[in-house]
């Protein structure tokens, strides 16, 4: 069995759900075999990588792999590695009737400012033979000179109707029975992220081919344990040492960084038994700590500082 997020990844423009305007404009560019550098900004699981891949397939046909280099800025750390790989790739001329090759650089917002400057130089050096497609969650994290060299496309989260079409297509193929309310449930838990929809659907399908809203919600609960809530409650009761040790263990066990934790805490604050004034104070504190997290050097110190404010 294949993993569905790959199995059901669209390979043509027609199969893509959502992002209508973007797809139209980009399809037009590929027909003319001419395009500028592109920047895709938007939340995850809404089609940024997919569209980049579809562009490559459409332009280069069978030979798309030879003409398309995919790098992930948060994995292929170090701009030097990126630069060398890019250099080697860009040096050879395109072996197709398209005058350029494509470099797709994912998660660009994880590059430091220095690395972005270096990237900008690299983009200039290879403009003749290559086009860059940069993808990121927040375009505000990229420096102006890079943005100004790209046509920027802003992707939006999927709508319920998009999710409906995706789910129905998969259900038909995998012979799943989808009961009433399931699509709404999937849309609910997904934040408009197609990857979440498909992952949740596939793991539910591994249990039963009858998919119900209850199953979906149970699945999400199983995947996102309520550890954070417990930790916050322990802190509220005043056992700070235990709370912060648990928090540290959870971070290690799940490979979560400081920001992941703050996001979860932020959501959980509203589920705690505290008066509203305190909740708002804590939300404000979350923001302050998130700011310090970015500026500071030891994430754990910052998280502890947040946690200590929960003590009643």
């Amino acid at each position: 069995m294949e993993i569905w997020i790959e199995k059901y990844r669209p390979s043509t423009f027609a199969e893509i759900r959502g992002q209508k305007n973007i797809v139209e404009r980009i399809e037009a560019m590929t027909t003319q075999k001419s395009m500028p550098h592109l920047m895709f900004a938007g939340p995850s699981g809404v089609g940024k990588s997919t569209i980049a891949l579809v562009i490559a397939r459409t332009l280069f046909g069978e030979k798309w792999r030879e003409n398309f280099l995919e790098l992930n800025a948060s994995d292929d750390r170090g701009i030097d590695i990126v630069r060398n790989t890019i250099k080697n790739f860009a040096r050879l001329k395109s072996i197709s009737n398209v005058p350029f090759k494509i470099i797709f650089l994912d998660e660009c917002d994880s590059l430091t400012k220095d690395a972005q400057q270096a990237l900008r130089r690299t983009m200039e050096n290879f403009t003749k033979s290559t086009r860059f497609i940069l993808s990121c969650n927040f375009s505000s994290k990229l420096i102006e000179p890079i943005k100004s060299r790209c046509a920027v496309f802003r992707f939006t989260a999927l709508e319920e109707n998009d999710v409906k079409e995706i789910v129905e297509h998969i259900a038909k193929n995998e012979k799943l029975k989808i009961s009433d309310g399931t699509i709404k449930a999937l849309f609910d838990i997904s934040d408009g992220d197609c990857r979440k929809v498909e992952n949740a659907l596939q793991s539910c399908a591994s249990i039963s081919n009858k998919i119900t809203p209850e199953l979906i919600y149970d699945m999400v609960a199983a995947v996102n344990p309520i550890e954070i809530k417990n930790i916050l409650e322990i802190a509220i009761k005043g056992d700070f040492v235990r709370a912060r040790d648990l928090l540290f263990d959870v971070r290690l066990k799940r490979g979560l960084n400081g920001l992941d934790i703050i996001k979860q805490i932020q959501k959980e604050i509203w589920n705690l038994k505290l008066d509203d004034k305190k909740k708002i104070r804590l939300i404000d504190k979350c923001g302050e700590i998130e700011f310090r997290l970015v500026e500071g050097s030891d994430e754990h110190i910052q998280l502890e500082t947040l946690l200590v404010n929960f003590i009643e």
Binding site: M1, E2, I3, S49, S74, E107, S203
Partner: peptide, 30 residues
């Protein structure tokens, strides 16, 4: 990460939790 066009950090956080469940339910996954 290489296969599904994501960074390995994201895979750990977003995909592995689901994959675990699929594997635990004895569904082979290629």
């Amino acid at each position: 990460a290489k296969k599904i066009h994501m960074s390995s950090g994201r895979v750990t956080k977003e995909v592995l939790p689901y994959l675990r469940i699929i594997v635990k339910n004895k569904k082979g996954i290629d």
